[in-house]
Each structure stands twice: as structure tokens, then as C-alpha cells.
Design a protein around this nucleic acid. Structure first.
Lengths: 218, 218
DNA sequence: ATAATATTTTAGACAAATCTAAAAATTTGT
DNA sequence: ACAAATTTTTAGATTTGTCTAAAATATTAT
């Protein structure tokens, strides 16, 4: 697969939400910042290679083979994102464009070893799940922080209460959307939590925890 | 710079030994596994961009600007090689083709942080020096292991005594050419050394050390 | 149902990087 | 020094991925 082909496969995958729905030429063109006619050309080529099913004017869908390729690219992309954040101190919003380049590097051993080096993470810094080598992955689920089990890894993805005092609290404590979070301990007595966020441990009250949404792997 | 341009720049750099000597079209073609006519075309383009000096039939040389680019590519290549060996357990002979891909990833922060993550190494797993961000680097020097200072990082590059018993000894102890080596301690009494090789500590006699050449940074 | 609108495809052109075959310049051998 | 051999360049073609403009198909609104 060439660079360009891989980019198209990924775009079709992401637009296909899961995978099934056929994706329109225009949608792909917009996502890839290119022209619909270019998409038509590429999609024909991918179809000949057995990567997508395509009928003219009817949109395009990944085949099973194409889905496998897409998942392996997504896996690489997300593992590299974890690497950049955990090992190289990138912030979660800086990683995308670099991972976009790294995901195209071809070496099975590289990815296997990177996975091991990172401790086989199941979730990336944006809270999205990382497909296994075999292309399986769990869906991410949104829960209130107060409802997750001790030991859970997740990512902050939203607030229930968006009042200024609460937002100010988050800001003051350096908690931002997209931050990875781990629940280390739950205090039975008052429902307060010890969490690790941005590599810093802190304790938060049940009130706070029940107003913060996190995305976790089910 | 495109992928292809970067590959040509690197080839011209390596063939130029240091940098100065003009490099023949044929030599570049052979190194890049392409045809001389393709080299001529590319070299014209690089010349227009100010990367090389080129006069037809006279060969090609990097400009100062071109040299800077070459050194930044070499720096990236060698830092990735260190990463692959030290963090991902690649052996020194597996790293090249993967580093060849990684070296093209564009992100200044990525390389700065990688450098930091690796502890600012000065030498790659093949014993070649790593240029600094500013494009400076020390020359590698070949010495007998017995002559280097405690704490030195180096790479096995040859033997003085190539008799079967000595080679058998190296083999039995898993010491091969290309292996990275660190001198941890020198025993004054008998001149024996404690070294770390292949991530394993071992003690070797002065006799052995004075028959093994290592490449180090001066 | 059909006209207007929007989407998608086709046809033909272009730039980048490569190739082959032939021409031009350089180097070598005597 | 000059013919032969070698190296290098030119000219023209090819492939990949893209583009524009026009034609074909599908969708929508009345």
C-alpha cells in the first residue's frame, strides 16, 4: 500500500463509523482535502485491489480485507500517540500530525515492540480504543467518573455541570478535556477518589467526580 | 523536501565522505539503485533549490545548506537507531531499514524529545557519531578496548588477534562485531575490565581487552 | 412527474520521479 | 594525439496521483 492509498483507507474507515455504511465520494474528498474526481480515481484502484467495494454513484465501503488494513493503521496511529504523550512529553493536542506520519512506517516488529514498551495500552490519549494486533477492540464508553471501578484508565471527555465555578475548579487544578486519568482509590466513607491525572496524584470529592465524564474501555 | 530528495541528499553526503569531494552521477545511481539519467534529473532540481553545486559532466557536491540538511537526516536516522536498540530490543543489524523510514518524519519537537528520552547519545549502535542539532559532531576513533577510559561508550569494530582460540572465545561469550559496549570499571591490579555488552555485564581480562578494537567518540 | 439542483464520473491535462535509447562529453590506452 | 571505451546527458515515454471542465446520474422540490 502506498502512503496515499493508506490515507484513503483510513478516511473511508473513519467516515464509515464502525465500518458498514457506504461513504460518499464527496465526503471522502472533503475529509482528505482533495477533489471528488480524485477520489473516484483512487477508489477504482482500491476496488481492483480488493480493498473496497465500489459501484459508481453508489459510494464506497471497505471490504473485510480493507477493514483489516484500516484497523492496523489505526492501531499504529494510536500506539504512536501513546508513545508521544507518555514517553516524549507531548500534550494530547500536539500528537495528531506527528502520529499521522509515524503510522505509515512499515515494520511488524516495530509495532509489536512499541506495544510492549508502552505496556500494551488499550486506549489512546484522546480516549479512543487501540485495536489489537488481530484487529479487535472494545468500544469506548462514556461514564461519570464517580461510576467507574478502581484501577480504571480513561480520558476526560466532558462535564455534566458546566457552571463557571466548576469549570474554574477544573482549570485551577489543571484538569482539561482530553487528559488521561487513572482511578487509584475510592474512599468508601465519603465517596472521594484518589486519581492520577497528568502524572500527578490528587484527591477529589464525590461531587466533583459525579460531574466529570470520562471515556473508558468497557 | 520530498522523500526522494532527502534520499538523494543523504546518498550524496555519504558518498562525499565528510562532504567535500564531488560525487559522480554513476556512483549516486548505484547507491540509490536507480539509473544515471534519473540522477541527472534530480541533481538539476536540487541544484536549482540551492542544495547542491552541479556542473554537467563534473559531478555534484552539497552546498553548505545541503550539508545542513544531510546532517539533520543523519541525526534523525541515528537517534532512531539508538531508540530501536535501546528501547525496543532490536539487534544492531535489524535497525537500518526501519530507521530509513523513521528518519523522514518531520517534527522538530519529536527529535528533540527523542534525543532527551535517550539521554543525548553521542554514538549510534553501529559506532557512528550522532550530529548535534546544530550539525556538529565528533569523529569516531578506533582504539583498543584496553586503552579507553572508564565510562566510555563504544562499539566493537574489529580484532587485533584473529586466531581461532580468540575468535572462539568471543563467540562463546556472545561478543560480535557491531555490538555496543560500555566500560564500567577498570581493575588497577590486573588491568581487567568490567564491561556491559548486549545489556549483560561481564568481566574480561587485560589480554582480551588489548585484542579488541572499539570505535568511540574522541 | 418533471424541472431544477446537487453529486459523481469521465475525459483530458499536468507535475514528480522514473525509465530506455540515443547523443554528447570525458577519460583512457597506446 | 586520437581512437576506443566509458560516463553523462538529453529526448521522449511511463506511472502515480492530482486537477479542471464537461457530461452523466441521482436527488429534491413543486
Amino acid at each position: 500500500m502506498t502512503l496515499s492509498e493508506e490515507d484513503y483507507i483510513k478516511a473511508i474507515y473513519h467516515l464509515g463509523k464502525g465500518e458498514q455504511a457506504p461513504v460518499s465520494t464527496n465526503a471522502v474528498a472533503e475529509k482528505m482535502d482533495t477533489k471528488p474526481s480524485s477520489v473516484t480515481d483512487m477508489v477504482k484502484k482500491l476496488s481492483e485491489k480488493g480493498v473496497v467495494n465500489y459501484r459508481r454513484y453508489k459510494g464506497v465501503r471497505l471490504t473485510e480485507y480493507g477493514l483489516k488494513i484500516a484497523l492496523s493503521i489505526v492501531r499504529k496511529h494510536r500506539l504512536w500517540e501513546v508513545f508521544l504523550v507518555e514517553k516524549l512529553h507531548f500534550s494530547w493536542d500536539e500528537v495528531h500530525e506527528v502520529a499521522e506520519q509515524l503510522e505509515h512506517v512499515k515494520s511488524e516488529k516495530l509495532i509489536d515492540e512499541l506495544d510492549k514498551h508502552l505496556g500494551f495500552p488499550k486506549i489512546d490519549p484522546h480516549g479512543d480504543p487501540i485495536p489489537s494486533k488481530e484487529g479487535e477492540f472494545k468500544k469506548a464508553v462514556k461514564k461519570l467518573l464517580s461510576e467507574v471501578l478502581t484501577g480504571t484508565n480513561g480520558v476526560c471527555v466532558g462535564v455534566k455541570d458546566s457552571s463557571p465555578p466548576f469549570l474554574k475548579f477544573l482549570d485551577k487544578n489543571n484538569i482539561a478535556l482530553g487528559d488521561p486519568i487513572i482511578v487509584l482509590e475510592k474512599e468508601e466513607f465519603d465517596g472521594s477518589l484518589t486519581i492520577k491525572i497528568n502524572n500527578k496524584e490528587m484527591r477529589i470529592s464525590e461531587q466533583i467526580a459525579s460531574n466529570l465524564f470520562v471515556e473508558i474501555i468497557d
